[in-house]
Design a protein around this nucleic acid. Structure first.
Lengths: 201, 201
DNA sequence: GTCTATACATGGATAGAC
DNA sequence: GTCTATCCATGTATAGAC
C-alpha cells in the first residue's frame, strides 16, 4: 500500500471518529467509530494504538484546523469600530460550525482525562487570540485602557461563553439572544469606555 | 427504618456520588460510588432507579445549593462602583469551590446526554443572575446602556469564562491572571462606558 | 433494608484467516 | 494490510441470604 493510500485510510478513520465522538463524546463505541469510517475495527487499531490515542489525535487535528482562522494582518490594520465589528463577527460565526462547538465541548468535558488537550487548546487557540487582541488594544492610540490583556480576556470570554450558553447548553431555545445584540453592546461598551478613558487622562 | 434515617442514607449515597462524579465524570463506577458513600451497592439501587437517575439527582441537588447564593436585595441597593465590585467578587469567589467548578464541567460535558440538566442550569442559575444584573443596570440612572440585557450577558460571560479557563482548563498554570486584574478592568469598562453613554445622550 | 455473590450486556482489544 | 470472529475485562443491575 502506498503512503498516499495509507493517509487516505487514516483520514477515513478520523472522519468516522469525528462523527462518533461529536455525537457521543469520549463514550463513543469503537465498533461504531469503525463503522462510521467505513473500515474494519482492526484497521482502526492498525493506525491508532488505542482509543485514547485516537481521541487525542482527533481533537489535536480539529484544533489545527482552527489555529490560523483568526487574526489576520489586514484585520489588525482596521480602525477600532471596524476592527471590533469584524473580529466579533468572525468569532460568532464559529457558532455555526458544529465541529468547532463540539470540539469545545469535548475539550471541557475531557479536561480531567486529557489535561494536555485542554492545555493545547489554551496555548494554541486561546492565548494567541487574546494576545493579538491585547496587542491591538495596546497599539491603538484611541484605546487607552489601563490593562489591555485583561480587557482582551473580558471580550474573548464574553464571546466564548455566549457560544457555550447558546449552542452547547441550548440557550438558543430557552434564553435566545441575537448575535447582533451581543455584538452591538460589546462594541458600545468598548468604544464608549475607550472614549471616556481618553478624557480621563 | 425511620424517615429521618432514610434521608441520612440518601445523603450518604449522594456524598459518595458527588466525590466520584466530580473526579471521574459520568464515567464513574457504581461500585466506587457505593464505596465512597460507605454503603452497599444494592443500597444505592434501593434509593435510585439507575445511574442516570442518581447523576441527575446529584447535579440537581448541587444546583439547588447555588441558586440563592447570588443577588441579594442589599446588593441591589448599592451604587454602581460598589455594586459591580461586590458582584464581581462574589462571582469570582465561586472559582475556589471545587464543587461549583465541577458542577459546571459536568453540566457542559453531559449536555448531550442530559439536556434537561443544561436547561435547568440556564433557567435556575444563569437567567436569574443575568436578569437581576440587567434590572440593576436598567434602573440605575447613571448606567445608560442601550441594551441592558446584552450588557449583563457580556459581564456574566466574561466572569464564567474566566472560571472555565483558569480552573477547568487549568489556565491558572499555563496562562495565569489575577482576579483583581479582571475585576478592575471589568469595572473600568462598565463605568467608563456608562459615563460616556451619559455624555452621548 | 442491607450485604454478598452473581448474571448479563457492553465494549475495548486481539488472534487468525486471507 | 485488512476483515471476521472472538476473547476477556469492566461495569450496570439484580437475586438471594440474613
Amino acid at each position: 500500500m502506498t503512503e498516499e493510500r495509507q493517509a487516505k485510510k487514516r483520514e477515513k478513520i478520523l472522519e468516522g471518529a469525528l462523527r462518533a465522538f461529536l455525537r457521543d463524546g469520549y463514550a463513543a463505541n469503537m465498533d461504531v467509530i469503525a463503522a462510521e469510517g467505513g473500515v474494519a475495527k482492526q484497521t482502526v487499531y492498525t493506525y491508532f494504538k488505542d482509543k485514547e490515542t485516537l481521541f487525542a489525535a482527533l481533537v489535536d487535528r480539529l484544533m489545527e484546523r482552527f489555529v490560523l482562522a483568526g487574526m489576520t494582518a489586514e484585520l489588525m490594520e482596521l480602525e477600532p469600530p471596524a476592527f471590533f465589528r469584524t473580529m466579533t463577527q468572525i468569532a460568532l460565526q464559529r457558532m455555526d460550525d458544529p465541529e468547532y462547538v463540539g470540539m469545545i465541548r469535548m475539550i471541557i468535558a475531557e479536561s480531567g482525562r486529557f489535561p494536555e488537550l485542554a492545555d493545547m487548546y489554551l496555548t494554541k487557540l486561546v492565548r494567541p487570540g487574546i494576545e493579538s487582541l491585547a496587542q491591538y488594544i495596546r497599539e491603538s492610540p484611541s484605546l487607552n485602557f489601563s490593562d489591555p490583556e485583561a480587557v482582551a480576556r473580558i471580550i474573548h470570554g464574553a464571546l466564548v461563553n455566549f457560544m457555550i450558553s447558546q449552542e452547547i447548553l441550548n440557550g438558543k431555545y430557552s434564553m435566545p439572544m441575537g448575535r447582533e445584540r451581543l455584538a452591538s453592546s460589546l462594541l458600545e461598551l468598548v468604544l464608549f469606555a475607550a472614549e471616556q478613558a481618553k478624557r480621563a487622562r
